[in-house]
Write a protein that binds this DNA or RNA. Structure first.
Lengths: 165, 165
DNA sequence: CGCAAGTATCTCGACGTCAAGACACTTCAC
DNA sequence: GTGAAGTGTCTTGACGTCGAGATACTTGCG
């Protein structure tokens, strides 16, 4: 089946036959698919009255394991946002009672963000919903294909994740 | 090589051994890679004094071929933004002299957006720069692997692109 | 010990996006 | 032709993000 990137690449080959546009076959698909996923997630989370950004923060804390707390700096690296954004997110989540700020006992510059009981429940529920939705999207592929795809993507993400950038 | 998603998945398996988190192996990588690509593109385009959103609009028009004009509605479907956003983008690009608005001769509700000569040159230059950067990112993979990856991604994007979403 | 450099977080203003609705024009059925 | 539904674009207000700088504390060197 043809997709929008096939059309996009064909158009470039017509308009700019002098250029090698093969990279777009992969990376434009990644960007566009991410865009579609963002939209789908927004809808899935709405059932749990959560925004995607709230999910990102809550699940980062949830994954940390008991006592479900991380510093704002650790949250930054997990969510790929800037520090100003994270401050704002923590403020809003705290106001909703899903997280709380505690002073870091070992560094008085620092703060720890801890998930509340309600925050934990909401994260768990939303995660289950998200996984259901993602399984439906991935039903296009066989188990083996999903494994291949994951491995190929890992090769591209690893440099970004390991060399700081 | 391990990436951030490997760590993320391992954390979920520890915290929620009851859930099947396999979908994250693919889709979390797509989202995170897209995020990294956004950042890299922003830097690449800065050399040409263009923002990513400007590039998106200008190249959509460029790909359309002479006379390089599309309606705002056609631009919406190509760029995956809302109509209010597109109006705003066209306003700003017009103010910079990179596009111009013309009345649509065949539908008086409509408008056509046309690339100016300078807009076309800027789009062409930025595209070449982007492709160089993307080639560097994709050097992690063999030509055959890139082909495989593109084909697998196409299977996931096609439903979004063909069934209206 | 004392000071400079480094680090963690927060503050602030500018900006881009979105969603919903308004408006103008077109199309289609009767 | 006329009215209703449909379509294409723009307007508006709220919101989230970013980047740069400020602040408070810590670390390491002399």
């Amino acid at each position: 089946m043809e997709d929008e990137v096939d059309r996009l690449v064909a158009a470039w080959r017509r308009e700019r036959p002098d250029l090698d546009v093969e990279p777009l076959e992969v990376l434009s698909r990644v960007s566009r698919l991410a865009r579609h996923l963002d939209r789908a997630r927004r809808i899935a989370f709405a059932e749990h009255a959560l925004e995607p950004w709230e999910f990102d923060v809550l699940t980062s804390l949830r994954r940390a394991g008991a006592p479900y707390q991380l510093s704002p700096g650790q949250l930054l690296t997990q969510t790929l946002v800037t520090s100003g954004t994270m401050t704002n997110r923590i403020d809003r989540l705290a106001k909703k009672g899903l997280v709380e700020r505690l002073p870091d006992p070992s560094d008085r510059r620092g703060v720890l963000v801890r998930l509340t009981g309600e925050g934990r429940d909401r994260a768990d529920q939303a995660l289950a919903g998200l996984l259901d939705q993602e399984r439906a999207i991935l039903a296009e592929l066989s188990r083996a294909q999903r494994g291949e795809l994951a491995a190929l993507l890992r090769q591209l993400t690893a440099p970004f994740d390991n060399i700081p950038g």
